[in-house]
């Protein structure tokens, strides 16, 4: 029984991963790609690790999966934030149909 529930949760997570990677392909510029990919892949991996915990229970493997989930939840948005800042400082323009760019206004002042 636990096996079935766990594999369903892992399947949902893997599907989220797939949508994140499709977003990486379809979005028009770096920032939109970063948004789609970071959100979907982070939640997808969290679902996969929760599924692992459901299957194996609270033995050492399950506890390590939970710790890994906490690490990913902390590090992934930090990395995305650093990448967005680095991309903007290295001079990558926003998509041509973008509405506004307050950050560039500040830098040119």
């Amino acid at each position: 029984m636990n096996n079935i529930i766990g594999y369903i949760i892992i399947g949902i997570g893997v599907l989220f991963n797939l949508f994140g990677c499709i977003g990486l392909l379809r979005m028009p510029d770096v920032y939109c790609r970063l948004q789609a990919a970071t959100k979907c892949v982070t939640l997808g991996i969290c679902f996969v690790l929760i599924g692992v915990v459901v299957i194996v229970g609270f033995n050492p493997l399950g506890v390590k999966a939970l710790i890994c989930m906490v690490f990913i939840l902390v590090t992934s948005p930090t990395g995305a934030h650093a990448l967005a800042r680095g991309a903007h400082k290295s001079g990558v323009k926003l998509w041509k149909k973008s509405v506004c760019d307050k950050y560039k206004d500040k830098e040119s002042k």
């Binding site: 990677c21 990486l24 991996i45 996969v48 999966a65």
Partner: peptide
Amino acid sequence: VAIDILGIVVVGFTA
């Protein structure tokens, strides 16, 4: 960005 995402997907593989 793609390298970052690839790193996270590999964690799922290992799990």
